[in-house]
Design a protein around this nucleic acid. Structure first.
Length: 442
RNA sequence: CGGGGCGUAGCGAAGCCUGGUAUCGCGGCUGGUUUGGGACCAGUAGAUCGCAGGUUCAAAUCCUGCCGCCCCGACCA
């Protein structure tokens, strides 16, 4: 892609409405545009990053055997009346009437709908266990949206739902999701900690929030530092290994504000290991048994002919929120560096260009075509901005690798720079190999 | 929803108190000079001052209503 052709409305100054760095950066680099309070349009660069995050989330869900489907954004109020949440959910639910006066709502979550789908098609214990998920827009009419895409009304979320026969099996599904989440966040270049949390309006008695550390986070957290030493790579994708991983995390104290008790913290965690900080919630998993299957009468027949309500859990990841969360975690010293796995481009060519027919343009074009033909997603800054202006620009856009075409390299040599890191003089082949290695390691 | 604040060109601001038909920087466009950390010169385009009503000879400025947006709080992925 040539930069001159890319729809990327860059801003030089901070828009006055943005108060935190991820929001400012997303506006400055033309990733999003606010449409109304808490509602955003996603412009090409922002959309591309979000899609890459979505892809990783999807792959990790599929790995644990979850199956993707797609439920609508607009739901009928009927099933919500059945579960009792039509009244309980409150003002956060956006209620709509169609022209016949029928009560509809823009889905804030999907427990009711998935349960309705499941109960109408599954009748036998033989069909369990099952995990279903979708990645879809949600709407919650927040009292006060803020922080750009981190806390908005309309947001893109992966939500999964597990169906099991009994508590023990259900907890195995829960643990699978626990494992998938840790792998997902790791691939996004994030360190996420699972923490015991309150269940809120979803309900249930077992719940973990997955939190990444960031000063601007809304969640206050208390944890045992040793929790960061757990290596998920030591665990395989099978139930015993997954259960074992869950147990490892349970050994260390880690809670959010609402579950915090000072006595517990001081008695369970050695003073040197006590960590009190702030973080951003990027995922939340719940086990709530028959809370929805019972009122919605979602049961299956057992071997002996008896009926049992299915045991359910639900599992969310804020995909759109993650875009902002990654920036909060990765933006430092006014330089953004996207993890390779979700960068809007693999590499950018930054030439000094006086005129389009300059030798630098030919040299850039040569490596651009070569890399592009090698399936590398490359951006070519073909504008005539000053080189120094280009550097500033790409400090914000955050593409992790740069090829600089200026006066510091010979005819068949290229300056290859890792953003915020060191510069090497390499040949065209060496660059290709290096990039392929970086890309394929994700 | 309570408290506070803001709305002037694509972006950031000044002007408003003390009414006289809009100013500056960035960005855009043209030409020239520059070229390794947001360069310089010259020229040029771009605003029914959030909307509606009122006061006045005259309203960005004063008054009323509405809309939109931001911040703090309570609440939440």
């Amino acid at each position: 892609m040539y930069l001159s052709k890319l729809f990327i409305p860059l801003l030089k100054e901070n828009p006055s409405e943005a108060k935190i760095k991820s929001h400012q950066l997303m506006l400055k680099t033309g990733m999003i545009k606010q449409s109304s309070t808490g509602i955003y349009s996603w412009l090409p660069i922002g959309f591309k990053i979000m899609k890459k995050i979505e892809k990783i989330v999807r792959e990790e869900q599929n790995k644990i055997g979850a199956q993707e489907l797609l439920m609508p954004t607009i739901q009928s109020a009927e099933i919500w009346k059945e579960s009792g949440r039509y009244d309980d959910y409150g003002e956060e639910m956006l209620r709509i009437k169609d022209r016949q006066g029928k009560d509809l709502l823009y889905g804030p979550t999907n427990e009711e709908l998935i349960t309705e789908i499941f109960r109408s098609s599954v009748k036998s214990y033989k069909s369990l266990p099952q995990i279903l998920y979708h990645i879809q827009w949600k709407f919650r009419d927040e009292l006060r949206p803020r922080f750009g895409v981190m806390r908005c009304k309309e947001f893109f979320m992966k939500d999964a739902y597990s169906f099991d026969l009994d508590d023990d099996k259900a907890k195995e599904s829960y643990n699978k999701m626990f494992f998938a989440y840790l792998n997902t966040f790791k691939r996004l270049g994030l360190t996420a900690i699972p923490m015991s949390a309150d269940t809120g309006p979803i309900g249930g008695d077992l719940s973990h929030e997955f939190i990444i550390l960031a000063d601007t986070g809304e969640s206050k957290i208390y944890a045992d530092k040793r929790i960061f030493d757990i290596d998920i790579n030591e665990h395989q994708n099978n139930q015993p290994s997954i259960n074992n991983l869950r147990r490892k995390y349970d050994n260390f104290y880690a809670v959010t504000d609402d579950k915090f008790k000072k006595e517990d913290f001081t008695s369970k965690v050695n003073k040197n290991n006590q960590l009190t900080t702030k973080g951003i919630e990027v995922g939340h998993i719940f086990y709530f048994g028959d809370k929805y299957s019972k009122p919605l009468k979602c049961s299956v027949d057992l071997k002996d002919g008896k009926k049992v309500y299915v045991k359910m859990g639900s599992y969310g990841i804020g995909v759109s929120r993650l875009v902002g969360a990654v920036i909060e975690a990765k933006f430092n010293n006014n330089i953004m560096k996207w993890p390779e796995s979700i960068s809007p481009f693999d590499v950018v060519i930054i030439p000094s260009l006086q005129k389009k027919d300059d030798l630098n343009f030919e040299k850039s074009k040569k490596i651009y075509d070569f890399l592009k033909n090698s399936n590398i997603d490359v951006l070519f800054d073909d504008t005539e901005d000053h080189l120094s202006a280009k550097f500033k620009k790409f400090d914000l856009i955050g593409i992790p690798y740069q090829i600089i075409i200026g006066s510091k390299s010979g005819e068949n040599q290229f300056e290859f720079k890792e953003i915020n890191g060191k510069t090497d003089i390499l040949t065209i082949e060496e660059i290709k190999n290096k990039l392929n290695k970086k890309i394929n390691s994700n």
